[in-house]
Design a binder for these strands. Sequence first.
DNA 1: GTGAAAGCGCTAACAT
DNA 2: ATGTTAGCGCTTTCAC
Lengths: 337, 337
Amino acid sequence: MSKQYITLKDIAKALNLSASTVSRAMRNNPAISEETRELVQAFAKKHKYKPNVLAMQLRTQRNTTIGVIVPKLVHYFFSTVLAGIEDEAGKENYNILICQSNEDYKKEIKSVQTLLDARVSGILASQSKTTHEYGHFQDVLDNNVSLVFFDRICTGVNTDRVVVDDYDGAFNAVDYMVSTGCKKIAFLGSDANMHISNNRRMGYEGALRKNKLPINKSFIKECDTQIIAQTMVPDMLSAAEVPDAFFCINDEVAAYCLQLVKAAGFRVPEDISICGFTNGYLTEVTDPTLTSVDQHGFQIGVEAARLLIDRIEGRETKEGVVNKLIKTNLVVRNSTR
Amino acid sequence: MSKQYITLKDIAKALNLSASTVSRAMRNNPAISEETRELVQAFAKKHKYKPNVLAMQLRTQRNTTIGVIVPKLVHYFFSTVLAGIEDEAGKENYNILICQSNEDYKKEIKSVQTLLDARVSGILASQSKTTHEYGHFQDVLDNNVSLVFFDRICTGVNTDRVVVDDYDGAFNAVDYMVSTGCKKIAFLGSDANMHISNNRRMGYEGALRKNKLPINKSFIKECDTQIIAQTMVPDMLSAAEVPDAFFCINDEVAAYCLQLVKAAGFRVPEDISICGFTNGYLTEVTDPTLTSVDQHGFQIGVEAARLLIDRIEGRETKEGVVNKLIKTNLVVRNSTR
DNA sequence: GTGAAAGCGCTAACAT
DNA sequence: ATGTTAGCGCTTTCAC
């Protein structure tokens, strides 16, 4: 990186002013006369002056970059959240540095290090599936860097969070399926130690209980990828008791499940109803189209970024930890009766 | 951002050394005695010393951040490319700063500004659909910042590019469909001024010509979103001459087209074959599953990042501009005969 | 083998 | 209204 941009000093020299005057003039400091201000700004514009953000941040000890850690960018939900984060951060002139953990605990630790090394002033994170310790997240706080979790929160670390109302989303979806006549609804979830999965399972059970339906343990499975679904779903369909509905942890599993159910000779939704979670673009291309719970990823991103930036800027010194709950809504399509 | 990390000076003071010695010791400078080196490094580790990257970069005038501009993160293809970029950049200890143009020319200009302001040492970009001028990209080069285009390249700017072999991909797909008996293949593409669309159209026409099939202008349409497809496809299906195959610019259009073709009472693939482009996860959940051209997004990301970093580091001073062509391959599923 | 001094580009007292 | 000085945290001559 050779010398490519002109500096404050260059301007100062050219205009026979001091660097501080130029600095003030550029930032519209009222102490500077209109005349010099215009002179300086015109010169700066003409010569495409760009303040050196590095130097500025070094001097002022504040940094306008925030880091984001997501499990995977390819998931519709996370890329939507990211769009929200980017949008909100952009409004506040913050840049975002992105790391993917790829659902890998080690990579997640490395991501935290990377972001801390880059001196971000805050981190937005959604945990990887394989993370069961949280020392690396505690490190963030210990270094006085703000931290906000979104979606896949880490309960061991005491900090702000933005989560989907998973319980409510699941409750409503299952309640709806019951209302259409389903009586034997299966739940395809994730590892029970994942908060979001647990909450959805409780919402699922809550809806069954409300409707006085039995909770059948053999209908509750850990099945959150296509690969698992490939064997799990056929197994369930050939068991003694066959579900008449599947409530799935995400759209991918739901869409695969749909394929497998049809392949096994069942009609959807007449014989078996299927509901997903996310409401991404998969929902429109399956046959029948997929009923799903909309998670409002963009809004989650916006809220999380806002929360973080408020912390960084020291605004709204709310007492203790903030927990934001984002409501979902059920989008009914043709995979449910 | 209050004082949160210890500095070189702090270590120097604590150990009764000079800052320069500590600096050297940390970087394993051979001029430093083993003894002090170990002393310093142990102390640094114990007190979680993190070199201030900002100061380092300011001092050395080199920066290890690269910027990426993509139209939209939510598209499977771009998020895959990004994963590749992140992977390769990570290996070289580069960070990535991401901007989305949202297919908006103005936002794209702003993104370039943002990245330049952040003093990135290079930019990877894929143009927005609405971009017809390229002064902002020329600016990048004029500021001595490296620039590599990927996928949606900008031919007006003379710099490295990594592109998919769109012609070849389209040619093979169409040639394959002809081999299965299709004779009236339609092409649903983008704006003709988009390079990738144009190349695919030429590949499409090339394959028809090779097979001595007529090129029917009424079968070549600009249709690259679900919204356009919604009216365009039914129109084509009720025209005097109905296509017996659709070759689509991306998987989304193909998947929608599939729905619309079935809704109109045609069988897929018996009556009409359909082929997409990208080979994302939509392909597995449609019914029938979707034949598609795999673009190898991850590899594109890797190659683009490598090209850019090589430029930044001044390695491989290849003469002139480099053009990398990434081969595609056709993944045949059940939407084609 | 280690230290002193200067400086990257900027801002913020403290002058005048 | 403007200039002087110092310093953010680091690296890099140039000394010794």
